[in-house]
Structure formats: structure tokens, C-alpha cells
């Protein structure tokens, strides 16, 4: 039985499409104006936990074309997370917010600072800066060698670089709470219940911060201090720590 299961699993793996194939297929569908098919292919990619900047950018475009602005903005936000320097993705986000008359997300300075580079670049810089500095300061002593001036100079530089990454890491941590309202008129409820009183409605694509979680509900706060409980399926974080 176990052998049969493993065999079936192997077969499924063999028949599963490679991410690049799906990406190309979606691109062709977009070229043929078959946006529904393109969106389907790219959604499948994402549901299989295959993320790339290009796939998410194109997913945003496809979702926009099939009039799912919330999902489009989520995809572009994710694409911008992977490659914050891509001007096309930034332009699309600006375009979508302009069209949907959504406010620009109000980010603190640490959060804005953290958008300069992708999260993993910040982490790599922080790790290298910290451990490089520490190593240069400690290794000569531990290895019984004399600590040279250049050791100290480079250590100072490394630690300075590390210090510069700290606000970005803080901002990055805060950005982990950001999410997007997926459907239009997403209700923010007074209580995390099915029949909770609707306090306000968020338009599709608006960004909000998750402050609390309870069961199937998230307590989110949007621009203008609009806060309330929202169902998980109506709101999705750009990325989650879990």
C-alpha cells in the first residue's frame, strides 16, 4: 500500500508542470488576450507555493484584466516585495490605486526604508555586517594573531552597515502585518462573528494592518483609523511570518 502511494506520488510529481512552463503558458494566454486562462495558470503557480517576481507581476496584470482588483494589487505588492526596484510593478500599483481611487499606503519611515531592498537582501546585509564585524574583531585574538588596523577598520565598516540595516529589519517586521482586502466592499465588523455589525467597508485592494487574530477573523486597521474584524478569506497578508 505504501509502495503504491509512493508510486502515485512519484507519478504526480512527474506530471506536475514545471513553474517555467506554466509561466510561459500564462504569458502566451495573455498575448492571446485570454486573461482568464493566464490568471488560472498563474494562480495555480502561486497556490503551489511557486513565487517569482515575473509570475506575480503577470498575475497582477491578469487579475486586473479579469476585474479582480484586490487580487491584482495583492499580486503586485508581492512582486514588489521580491523586487522592490521594478518600476513596472510600482507603476501598476500606482495605476491600480489611481483607477480604484485607493489611498496610497501610509508607511512609517522604517517601513518605507525597508522597501528599498528586498527582505532577504536586508537580511544578508545585516548578517554579513554583524558577523563580519564580530569575526574581524575576535578572530585575530582567538587565532593568536595580532589585530591589525585594517581588521578594525573593516570591522567598523561592517558594524556600521549592520546598524543601518536595523531600522529596515524593524520596518520589515512591521510590514509583515500588512494585507490587502481582496473583495470589493469587504466589511469590517464590530465583532469576530458571522452576524457582527458592519462598521465600515473596505474597497478591494485597500491595504490594512492586522492587529489581532481570532479564529477565522483578523482585526485590521486601515487608513483613517477604520478598524474592525474581517474574515480571513476576504483579506490576505502580503506575506506572513508563519
Amino acid at each position: 500500500m505504501k509502495t503504491l502511494f509512493l508510486f502515485l506520488l512519484a507519478c504526480a510529481a512527474a506530471f506536475a508542470e514545471a513553474p517555467d512552463d506554466r509561466f510561459e503558458k500564462a504569458k502566451r494566454a495573455m498575448s492571446d488576450s485570454d486573461y482568464g486562462e493566464a490568471a488560472y495558470q498563474l494562480r495555480e503557480l502561486v497556490s503551489e507555493s511557486n513565487f517569482s517576481h515575473g509570475a506575480l507581476h503577470n498575475l497582477g496584470n491578469a487579475e486586473w484584466k479579469v476585474v479582480r482588483p484586490g487580487h491584482a494589487i495583492l499580486a503586485w505588492e508581492r512582486a514588489a516585495l521580491i523586487n522592490p526596484r521594478d518600476t513596472n510593478t510600482a507603476a501598476n500599483l500606482a495605476f491600480a490605486r489611481h483607477k480604484a481611487e485607493l489611498p496610497s499606503p501610509a508607511l512609517s519611515w522604517t517601513e518605507s526604508y525597508s522597501t528599498w531592498l528586498s527582505p532577504n537582501v536586508w537580511l544578508a546585509a545585516a548578517s554579513l555586517g554583524f558577523w563580519g564585524g564580530v569575526m574581524l574583531l575576535t578572530l585575530p585574538r582567538l587565532l593568536g594573531a595580532r589585530r591589525a588596523d585594517w581588521h578594525q577598520g573593516i570591522a567598523a565598516l561592517s558594524l556600521t552597515a549592520f546598524l543601518f540595516t536595523i531600522p529596515a529589519l524593524f520596518g520589515l517586521s512591521r510590514r509583515g502585518n500588512l494585507g490587502v482586502a481582496l473583495e470589493d466592499a469587504t466589511p469590517l465588523r464590530l465583532t469576530p462573528t458571522r452576524e457582527g455589525e458592519e462598521l465600515v467597508k473596505l474597497p478591494a485592494g485597500e491595504l490594512a494592518r492586522v492587529e489581532k487574530e481570532r479564529g477565522n477573523y483578523l482585526y485590521v486597521r486601515a487608513d483613517g483609523d477604520r478598524a474592525g474584524w474581517v474574515r480571513r478569506e476576504e483579506f490576505e497578508r502580503i506575506w506572513s511570518r508563519r
Binding site: F51, N58, N61, W64, F95, P119, W239
Partner: peptide, 28 residues
């Protein structure tokens, strides 16, 4: 000049299996 939807990304770029920054990964 109205903002406009830009074109498609030609290449997929590097694939990753998680959007979560490595800061919250065990391996990191």
C-alpha cells in the same frame, strides 16, 4: 497623462517557495 498598466514581465525571475523573509525561517 493617466497612469497606465505596464506590460508583462518577460522572464519569471528566480523562483522561491515562500514569500516570508528568511528572518522568520528556522534555517536562518
Amino acid at each position: 497623462i493617466e497612469p497606465a498598466l505596464t506590460g508583462l514581465a518577460e522572464s519569471s525571475g528566480l523562483w522561491t517557495h515562500s514569500l516570508r523573509p528568511a528572518l522568520w525561517s528556522r534555517w536562518f
